[in-house]
């Protein structure tokens, strides 16, 4: 498995979110592919030196998003992405993310064109280059 998770204690991001974000990113960039197996809750908890409940919570969130699936007795696997949110709900959740991105960028004096460029570039990295780390 080509997944290396880094845990930072003392960060403002809770540990379970650090795990979900890194798995999500590894899937988005192609470092983790469909049908690949993730470590069991206990194995990941022991290797990252974490409470197993924290890992279980991260896995539960990823399963709810439709990113992984636990097959009893066999393990935890990456599954093909299916849409779990209603499109309208998806748009509703996207809204505050866009707002905070744009307001921060304006506060840093970015011009609309610059911001658009940067956004396009990032989007390319995430969607095209499935192999390398962006």
């Amino acid at each position: 498995m080509s997944l290396k998770i880094n845990i930072n204690t003392g960060a403002s991001v809770p540990i379970y979110k650090q795990i979900t974000e890194q798995v999500r990113r590894a899937v988005a960039t192609g470092r983790l592919t469909v049908a690949e197996q993730l470590p069991s809750v206990r194995a990941l908890a022991e290797s990252l030196v974490l409470n197993p409940n924290t890992v279980a919570r991260a896995y539960a969130d990823l399963a709810r998003e439709g990113l992984i699936e636990t097959r009893p007795g066999r393990g935890v696997f990456i599954i093909p992405k299916r849409r779990v949110l209603h499109p309208a709900e998806g748009r509703r959740r996207l809204e505050p993310l866009l707002n905070s991105l744009i307001s921060e960028a304006i506060a840093m004096d970015f011009k609309p064109e610059e911001l658009q460029d940067a956004f396009e570039k990032k989007l390319q990295e995430w969607t095209n280059d499935k192999r390398g780390k962006p």
């Binding site: 845990i7 204690t9 003392g10 540990i15 030196v49 974490l50 409470n51 409940n53 924290t54």
Partner: peptide, 10 residues
């Protein structure tokens, strides 16, 4: 050690 607490405590 809050870092340790964060790792293990429920």
């Amino acid at each position: 050690h809050l870092g340790d607490v964060e790792r293990v405590a429920d």
